[in-house]
Amino acid sequence: MGHTTFIPDQDRKPSSLDKLDWLLEEAYSSEREVYILAMSKGKLRNPEDIVQQCAKLANISSAILVNGTIDFVVVGDENSAKAVARKLHEQTGEKIAIIKYVPLGHTYLNIREALDVTERKGDPWHFYNPDTESIDALLKN
């Protein structure tokens, strides 16, 4: 058994995960809070249109399709994030997970965990609390 050498592909384009990271890094600073509002792409017929339309809502700094999710970056506080979540739900009928952005975290995994929890709760939108609702927290109890 030999070993495998990983040869980077210098022509690689950034993935949507990379782009989400950029958008969040760009929006984040030590003086302001950033929230991710996520919805599942699920059965939506035209997710690209939703990205286009909802990106124009107040307080949304950017919107992007990442794998099976549509993610909106909101700069502001908890209340403004909730207000945007309400509007997003009204506009799309989809359940919205609200996640506070933490740099250097497992952002996409957290988004999916938050969506999982939101789906289970059945609320139109849900503010995800990793301290009590993450898998880590679940397995600690």
């Binding site: 690689r12 384009k13 993935s15 949507s16 794998n67 099976g68 996409y108 898998i135 397995l139």
Partner: peptide, 27 residues
């Protein structure tokens, strides 16, 4: 080839995210 490579990261990370859902269900 390049397209497959572009998508590979997303596929792997998505599978890891799905695994989270399974872990939660088992828990």
């Amino acid at each position: 080839h390049s397209t497959t490579f572009d998508e590979l990261q997303e596929i792997i990370i998505d599978l890891l995210a799905q695994e989270g859902s399974s872990i939660r269900e088992i828990a």
